[in-house]
């Protein structure tokens, strides 16, 4: 495992910590898209079905359990916690799940490595993760006052994807025969979705302004 992969995973973990900090400590999920969080829970549930059958390392197994556990915990907080759920911007978070889930599933049936249930679901999870941030980005654009934790959460998620791209470049040059086209192309699409957000995040940070996205 190279440094970019490790930093990518740690950035991903940190993004979850930041979000849980906001939800659990501040008891607010304002500006957070439940749609995106539900899509992430679905991503991990379909990708990590191999958790008991396919052992890579203790590190991988522990991380999988953390991402599965935290994603469902976040969804539970936003839907059921009596204080947190009242801070959810339901009227603004209007993106429809099926608009992302159905095309991703269709694509997974068409473009995959093997036609087995586990393989199709794994491929589906890769495609879905690439676009799962979409409802969150739409919600951010509609939010007038984006708080620091929400802005940092999305920034960390984008940074995690960017670090994974660097990880793949290193692996391509250091591991013989290493290639994974489905993951690479989805990863590039996913990172590109953050480009606009990054631009405004850095611009506002450099000007010492509060983060705001043009609508």
């Amino acid at each position: 495992m190279n440094i970019f992969r490790l930093c990518g995973d740690m950035t991903h973990l940190l993004s979850v910590v930041v979000l849980l900090l906001k939800i659990h400590t501040i008891k607010s999920c304002a500006g957070i898209s439940l749609k995106t969080q539900e899509l992430y829970a679905l991503v991990f549930a379909t990708r990590y079905l191999d958790i008991f059958t396919h052992h890579v390392s203790l590190y991988n197994t522990v991380m999988k359990i953390i991402f599965l556990g935290t994603s469902f915990t976040i969804v539970w907080y936003m839907r059921h916690h009596k204080v947190v759920r009242q801070t959810y911007d339901k009227e603004q978070d209007t993106f429809k799940h099926y608009m992302l889930i159905i095309p991703c599933f269709a694509l997974a049936l068409l473009i995959k490595t093997k036609f087995t249930p586990l393989e199709v679901l794994w491929t589906f999870s890769i495609y879905l993760e690439a676009v799962a941030i979409f409802p969150q980005l739409v919600l951010l654009q509609r939010t007038k006052n984006i708080d620091n934790l929400t802005g940092n959460y999305v920034f960390l998620l984008g940074a995690y994807r960017g670090l994974y791209l660097l990880n793949w470049i290193v692996r391509y040059f250091t591991e013989k025969g290493y290639r994974q086209w489905i993951t690479w192309i989805s990863g590039i699409v996913q990172t590109a979705l953050y480009a606009d957000f990054f631009y405004y995040y850095i611009k506002c940070w450099r000007n010492n302004e509060k983060l705001h996205l043009p609508s």
Binding site: D9, V56, N60, M63, K64, Y164, T183
Partner: peptide, 10 residues
């Protein structure tokens, strides 16, 4: 090893 089958990333 074929990395498409390895799935060693998260």
């Amino acid at each position: 090893p074929d990395d498409e089958d390895e799935k060693d990333e998260l």
